[in-house]
Design a protein around this nucleic acid. Sequence first.
DNA 1: CACTTGACCTGTCCGC
DNA 2: TGCGGACAGGTCAAGT
Length: 290
Amino acid sequence: MPELPEVETIRIGLAKLLPDREIADVWHDWQKSFPNAPADVARFMIGAKIKLVRRRAKVLIIELSSEYSLVIHLKMTGQLVLRGKQSFGAGHPTKSLVGELPDKSTRVILDFTDGSKLFFNDQRKFGWMRLLPSVEVPLIDFMQKVGPEPLEDDFTVDRFIERLARRKNSPIKAVLLDQTVLAGVGNIYADESLWAAKIHPSTPVSKVSKPKLVTLYSALRDILKLSIEKGGSTDRNFVDAKGKEGSYLNFAQVFRKAGQPCPRCGTEIVKIRVAGRGTHICPRCQRAPK
DNA sequence: CACTTGACCTGTCCGC
DNA sequence: TGCGGACAGGTCAAGT
């Protein structure tokens, strides 16, 4: 569920909150969430300060003063929430999806010397954290294979079309979700952008007209940007670095709207299955390929 | 090689 | 009220 806008929302929050905090201790309880804890933790985390927080695709990178970095993938249900009076003054959110922390989904806790704590929660345990030398981050398999950032200035419509053409016989939705083609798009933004461009998600890329691909390019970028402005989509349990929900789904047109009228033509939105994913379409605006 | 399906997990919801 | 089963969907490994 955390897709590009959700991970970016967390990054913006952490980039404001974390720098210069010094790690005092690290706790973890799920080995798969943090496979190189605790061996490397004492040497490269305790006593280190947070330098900066970056994002690439759906991955967060927290750089430490020890020249090691935490690389974090939240997968579907991961959360990164900072708590502590130092960070929020008197009134941090009391009612929200996240209550008292730690809770039963807490997998890792970073304790800082000022008393604040960063909680890595992950109900379904798909997420992970890795500690590795900062210089090695760009060399890991994921970074080598991941496609371009769709919101970068140099990501042009021609580049977009050229990337999609790498898998021209696949359903276009599957291609949008392919992280080696394009970074950061997941189920929500694939459905929303395909609806905006009036493209049926099962259409092979080679069968989609050039004008529709151009529309898809603009729609996808606009939707990703709007979602970042709205703090991302809270479908089930996404929250930002302060534990707050995002509001983009109030602006969504088709995602999770089966049975409701298409905002464009009034036809009932239906849920189908494409590329093994639940997929929301307007059957009139997005006609199936022959 | 291109493409699809299954596994990894847990919480929630639906029907009986 | 309890219980089995489907479902949620990011990514990688395994299968066709």
